[in-house]
Design a protein around this nucleic acid. Structure first.
Lengths: 206, 206
DNA sequence: TTTTATCTTGTTTATTTGGTCAGGAATTTT
DNA sequence: AAAATTCCTGACCAAATAAACAAGATAAAA
């Protein structure tokens, strides 16, 4: 296993390529994306792009990997000791944060799933399924202890995912509908507030 | 304006083509889709497909139009006279119904928006923006009359959209995570129940 | 039946695309 | 400074692709 040494130039170019690739894959999908277009966006000759990643599939894998890493890191964990209120506050706010700060990662992921998760089947079947099982169990404990309302934990997780990611995946629609050019810093806080309050309220025991 | 007469064969072939095209556009995106592939899926020679729709763009437009029609028809309207409870019940249940019965339409739409709404800019800017304005106003009235909690109506609409559509757009993920092969009839009822109860609870005045 | 319009499809064309390669430039190692 | 390694890129190629076309088959209208 002879690893290529990673000089500064190499790393710098790779980053440019991955950024460009992310945009290209979002706008045109995996099959519609062209290496030429990625090269143009990165300001490099096509042959150079293919020097770093030997083919299109490789570029895409690298982009996906980046995306999953981000999900892994950025996500606030749900732990039993926090209790339902704090756990949900943490989780929602970290997901909203991610959606606003890095909508592109969310979009890549969304497209991949919509199109049939052809490159992510394994991730969903193993990692994600396990994650949902574990977190559901925690919610169920809180329910059993009557610290939150008895709702289906799995659907609750889906609700949190969908509402938070929506601001990333559909940013175009949201901004157009609200007649705005871009999100602003205060939107993050506003949406976080709205969602946490709404969700916590939906789980309160009267 | 000489319209081509629409014989039975024509309509039948056109339908087959549109169904095939929908699948192809979902799996490969607009740019990645090929006319050949659509033809194969439809069981027709490529030249025949291009006889009915003179080019790829035309096929896509037809698919999009179908999608928007469905949105227009299938959506339960929100009317003031219903009051918040009934209105939300109607709206959520019609959207869930649509998501489960026709996930493909939802996916086509979602992909369009994620990719920058290149073919739907006008729809979002005019129709959708107006729709949100009108419905927000109705929610605001109910809020002013203290018939529901004071939450931001626009974000409330986004919340309903995202949670309901999630079951269509991310069906792959949901099914995999839940270790199931397909949705079943009772899932519709279950999800509708979950969402309406959760949302209404989040809007109740204590 | 004759004529006209609609439908069908094999073939062809021009362009785009993923990927290779050879050879040279720049950098690092010895 | 010599050698080795890494980096860069124009030119090239085979395959795929959107679309046009021509010529025949079928059905409808006269």
């Amino acid at each position: 296993m002879t690893e290529k040494k990673q000089g500064k130039i190499r790393i710098h170019s790779q980053e440019k390529i991955l950024l460009a690739a992310q945009d290209e894959f979002i706008t045109n999908g995996y099959k519609g994306a062209t290496v030429q277009s990625i090269a143009d966006l990165a300001g490099l000759p096509k042959a150079n792009v293919l020097y770093y990643f030997k083919n299109k599939e490789n570029i895409y894998h690298a982009v996906l990997e980046q995306t999953l890493d981000m999900w892994d890191q950025g996500i606030g964990d749900i732990v039993y000791s926090d209790g339902p209120k704090v756990a949900i506050e943490k989780f929602v706010s970290s997901k909203v944060q991610m959606s606003f700060k890095n909508p592109k990662a969310s979009k890549i992921y969304a497209m991949e799933i919509i199109q049939g998760a052809q490159h992510l089947k394994e991730f969903t079947r193993t990692y994600l399924r396990k994650w949902v099982r574990e977190k559901s169990k925690i919610f169920q404990q809180w329910i059993d202890e009557e610290r939150m309302l008895n709702v289906d934990p799995v659907n609750l997780i889906f609700l949190i995912w969908s509402t938070t990611q929506h601001y990333a995946d559909f940013d175009n629609q949201i901004l157009t509908v609200m007649n705005r050019a871009d999100y602003e810093e205060e939107d993050i806080e506003h949406v976080t507030q709205f969602l946490t309050q709404f969700i916590l309220r939906g789980l309160e025991i009267k």
